[in-house]
Computed example of a mutant assay.
Amino acid sequence: MLLLLFLLATSFLLPPGAQTMIIGGQDAEPHSRPYMAFLEIRGEENIRCGGFLLRDNVVLTAAHCNEGQITVVLGAHDITQTEKTQQRVAVRRKVPHPDFKRVPLGKGIELPINDLMLLQLKRPVTRKHSVRPIPLPSLGPTVKPGSMCSAAGWGSVSRHPEDLADTLQEVDLKVISVKSCSRKLDMSLEDFTEEILCAGDRGRAATFRGDSGGPLVCNGTVQGIVSCGRPNGSPPRIFTRITKFLPWIKKTLRNALRQGSISN
């Protein structure tokens, strides 16, 4: 039975003897994704999430990552090392979507809805080759089933949740229809809303624990946020569809700009 978790990360499993990488993926080229953010979260349990840089002092992530005090690391490849490219910044303010909730589907299963959160950093980062924002999608047509996208993160690198990646991992994922996604996940189609995007239809290619909040990137723009999926890390995975939340994101950023708390 499907048990949807709020993935505090995503990962990928390899065949025996292969080089360690995300399920069906590989090590990312260092700093090839300068928008990637690593979130250190200190609460009752120290956990990790991903995110991505929108403005010089704004990061977008998943609302279910709101579990404690957050420090954001930009410009990282190997998070176990103190790299010269890294910029560590504490979070000044967390703004989860006001309608974020976990919808019970029965038998202990919960589905995160409106799963996104803006993080205002205490200071702007310095833009370099290793640290740079990624553009939001336009309000036009959303990404369609069959589109090839990619996801990245420092989540689990096997089906053991504690086996977390040191270096940034990446994987290619195909977007699938919500109808196909609901069938593969053995869920009612009624449980899926327009805010949900599904990706992953082959082998073991997927995101997993520790990758939550990271981006699904299609044609150079971010289209989704890693949200949840089966507890064993198998595809498909569920993402928050960003185009459905553009009005809220832009309104929140405009209000913060007027208050002088957000960088252009």
Rank of each mutant, 00 (worst) to 15 (best):
L2N: 00
L5R: 13
L5W: 01
A18P: 01
I23G: 09
A28E: 03
E29K: 13
P30D: 06
E44H: 06
C49V: 03
G50E: 05
N57C: 04
A63E: 04
H64A: 05
H64T: 04
C65L: 06
C65G: 03
C65I: 05
G68W: 05
G68Y: 01
T71D: 04
A76T: 09
A76W: 03
T80A: 12
T85C: 09
R88A: 00
R93Y: 01
P98C: 09
R102I: 12
V103Q: 15
P104S: 14
G106R: 14
G108D: 06
I109R: 14
N114T: 12
D115H: 03
L118E: 01
R123P: 08
S130K: 07
S130M: 10
S130D: 11
I134Y: 07
S138Y: 12
P145V: 06
S147V: 12
A152Y: 03
G155C: 04
V157Q: 08
V157E: 03
P161T: 02
E162L: 00
D163I: 09
A165T: 08
T167C: 12
Q169E: 05
L173E: 07
L173D: 05
K179G: 09
D191R: 08
I196L: 10
C198G: 07
A199Y: 03
D201T: 00
A205H: 05
F208W: 09
F208N: 10
D211K: 03
D211F: 02
P215A: 06
V222A: 10
R230L: 13
P236A: 08
T240K: 02
T240E: 08
T240S: 12
A256R: 04
L257E: 13
R258Q: 10
